[in-house]
């Protein structure tokens, strides 16, 4: 089948190829005229609405080219591989925050504010990803980004400066996660059974303990002879659980990636520095730094060992190759 034209001029967009100016100059010189021609073909055959959708897609591709996140480059492929885990972590945290939001605060909790508008879309992102509906997941991620952005003024309005400072790190984290989902190369969607299984298992491994821990009331010693009831904050629980859950897939991913050995070495050095810094501090309430340092160290070490084992197996199976 070749490109057929209806000959209709109704759908002609004023400048369907103008969007190619967003590409980096070198790429634009090589492919700009060709992409503009394809957009013009679409404008002729399918009308202006199709061109608007295509222009948005080309804009996304141009931005990925500019940021090095297109699928032709390792960073883009790495981002595509990370998406199931990003979604699982963000959705698990969002589920825990949504579960805690309607509960009565405990004596030691203080005044905590929550922004459910930023959490709810993540359940849809995870659901769509697991169902293999990647377009739905991306639309939901756009909703999550809008929810996070809209929650910033809402947090300030409902909780003042304190409410804003309580929520801002979480909202920024969720916004970054939503941006990562939107920025991932669309030609490498995480719709394969392996990616969906990884997202499901990670969400279960992280989400269930996070939900249970975040909704459990415990007795805390608030002072000499004073015991008050409290509930763990979901974000702090996440920082404790996530390194443990993600360590194995991270080690496996590092071991299999092309530059995984070098990255693992950097992780080990950074982990040692983190542990040294936290070792100097006598007491860090709720501090997850030491745990993260230890888990990162072991993850880097495991990645190097798995990489070595894979290489030895490869040498045994194919003695002629290195």
């Amino acid at each position: 089948m070749t490109g057929t034209r209806s000959g209709s001029t109704e759908g002609r967009s004023p400048r369907p190829g103008g969007v190619v100016r967003l590409y980096p100059a070198a790429y634009r010189r090589q492919h700009g005229a060709e992409i503009a021609a394809t957009l013009a073909d679409i404008a002729d055959a399918e009308g202006r609405w199709a061109v608007r959708r295509e222009t948005a897609a080309v804009t996304g591709h141009a931005l990925r080219m500019r940021t090095g996140l297109d699928s032709a480059r390792p960073a883009g492929r790495a981002l595509a591989g990370l998406i199931p885990y990003v979604v699982a972590v963000a959705a698990s945290l969002s589920a825990a925050l949504l579960a805690v939001w309607p509960l009565e605060p405990q004596a030691w909790d203080g005044e905590r504010t929550y922004t459910p508008l930023a959490y709810a879309p993540w359940l849809a992102v995870l659901g769509c990803l697991i169902a293999g509906r990647w377009t739905g997941a991306r639309i939901s991620a756009a909703g999550a980004l809008a929810g996070a952005a809209g929650s910033v003024p809402l947090a300030f309005w409902s909780g003042g400066q304190e409410g804003l400072s309580q929520n801002l790190p979480t909202l920024l984290g969720l916004a970054v996660a939503a941006t990562a989902v939107l920025a991932a190369p669309p030609d490498l969607p995480p719709t394969a059974p392996r990616a969906r299984r990884n997202a499901t298992l990670t969400a279960l491994a992280l989400g269930v303990p996070l939900l249970v821990a975040s909704t459990t009331v415990f007795q805390a010693v608030a002072g000499p002879g004073i015991v008050e009831s409290a509930r763990p904050e979901p974000v702090r629980v996440l920082l404790q659980f996530a390194p443990l859950v993600l360590a194995f897939p991270a080690a496996l991913g590092l071991a299999r990636s092309r530059h995984g050995g070098a990255v693992a070495a950097v992780v080990i050095v950074a982990a040692c520095a983190l542990m040294y810094e936290y070792g100097l501090l006598a007491s860090v309430p709720y501090g997850a730094g030491m745990l993260i340092g230890k888990v990162a160290f072991l993850t880097g070490l495991a990645a190097l060992l798995i990489r070595l084992a894979l290489r030895l197996r490869g040498t045994r199976e194919h003695p002629g190759t290195s």
């Binding site: 089948m1 992409i35 021609a37 394809t38 295509e54 897609a57 591709h61 669309p186 030609d187």
Partner: peptide
């Protein structure tokens, strides 16, 4: 060429998959 590929992918998949131009050139 580009637009023919978009049409052909839609035909092969029975209209289920519609490659966008950005996705096509990325791939």
């Amino acid at each position: 060429h580009g637009y023919a590929l978009i049409q052909e992918v839609a035909a092969i998949s029975g209209g289920r998959v519609r490659l966008r131009a950005g996705t096509l050139y990325g791939a």
